[in-house]
Amino acid sequence: MKRSILTLIPLLLGLYSLAPGAEPLIVKLAYVGEPGTSALAGVRQGLSEANVQGRFLGQEYRLEVLPPAAAEQDLSGEGGFAAVIAALPAPALLSLARGNPDLPVFNITAREDDLRDACLPNLLHVIPSERMLRDAEAQWRRKHPDSGARAHAWDEHFRKYAASQLNKRFREDQGIPMDDEAWAGWAAARMVADLVARRQSADPEGLLAALRGRIDFDGQKGVKMNFRPNGQLSQVIFLVENGRVVGEAPVRGVAGAAGLESLGKSECPAS
């Protein structure tokens, strides 16, 4: 009985492939960093959600987890990766991005402002910079001088804008609360999937160009997000105090017309 079903499979696949575009497009992503981190859990979550979308639109996403030492390797070409998601300290991250100039490299953990000022064309920072977090806290304190709230990219208690749905499924699927780095990992995988589905292609150079254009990514923080000229993702920052989200930056009435751009730098330093 089992055998007869197995023999049917190639037949069914054959029939299936008669429909144009029915073969899924295989999209490979690399994660470079330590295993067992919330950042990696975020990437895994993003990937499994990308595969939910891919089931309907004809893509299949696969993840290869590589140790930090892989930052010194050439990952383009034979690896066939569409993009690299990196959870690395700043020096290793720079070396990875410089060594693989044709691959989009997502930074999901390093907050250093210098990395943004480096302005590498293929280095995209999903995690907010130190400066963005400081600006968010400064805006918040202008309205709430006594508040001790700290700035975060994400918080497991945030509920608005469908954040509660994301927090809920992340905790159920990964067994840990979603933190800043988990969110960044999730977001990197999801934005790749959005663009691959839209473009029906996973070539890294085309993907990089698309990422540098208007992506209007929905990071489940209530705004559409795009990368700035310096490679930093514009985003809402949460103010968290005593385990509660007490506010959001840009802070209304303080940030002014600059909106999201009131948080951190956007442009590359003049050379």
Binding site: E49, Q53, F56, L57, A162, D194, A197, R198, F217, D218
Partner: peptide, 26 residues
């Protein structure tokens, strides 16, 4: 589907998805 940016077209009475249309976010 808000988080995967699609319009799913479902046929009645078969109750299965016959097309998926990718649209803007949410």
């Amino acid at each position: 589907s808000e988080s995967t940016n699609m319009l799913h077209v479902i046929a009645v009475p078969e109750h299965r998805v016959v097309a998926n249309i990718l649209v803007g976010a949410r």
